[in-house]
């Protein structure tokens, strides 16, 4: 399950594609709007699903070495976010789905991979 697969299933607008978005497998999902909670995650190759569209979202994703960020509820990136996404080589997408529906969809995709 790559970032590209997730982007497709959530019908994402792609604001920034990073260098590994078609190759690296997403192994773990963190769904949260509170960044300190995201920092607790210890897993590698994670994707952050959030409704928080500030520069701090990308700074947090960068610290935990996330592969990318999906903004839910159709949230547009705030100014500066795309520049930071490029600087940190992070994928940055927007989906119209809610966080709950995005989680459910990504989970189905993960399950599909396993079967």
């Amino acid at each position: 399950m790559t970032l590209n697969d997730i982007s497709a299933i959530l019908s994402c607008i792609q604001h920034n594609k990073n260098t590994i978005f078609e190759t690296e497998a997403v192994e773990h999902i963190v769904a949260s709007d509170l960044m300190s909670e995201v920092l607790i995650a210890e897993e590698e190759n994670l994707l952050l699903i959030t409704a928080l569209n500030t520069e701090q979202t990308l700074r947090t994703a960068h610290i935990v070495d996330a592969l990318g960020v999906v903004l839910v509820n159709g949230k547009r990136p705030q100014p500066g976010m795309i520049r930071l996404a490029k600087e940190f080589d992070l994928a940055l997408f927007t989906t119209k789905s809610s966080m709950f529906k995005s989680c459910a969809a990504v989970h189905s995709l993960m399950n599909g991979d396993a079967n």
Binding site: I29, S32, F100, C103, A104, A105
Partner: peptide
Amino acid sequence: LNQFDTSIAVGRALELCK
């Protein structure tokens, strides 16, 4: 559980996802 895993558990219970 975290928010992601809880969402999946609830989604399954409500038969909204696989």
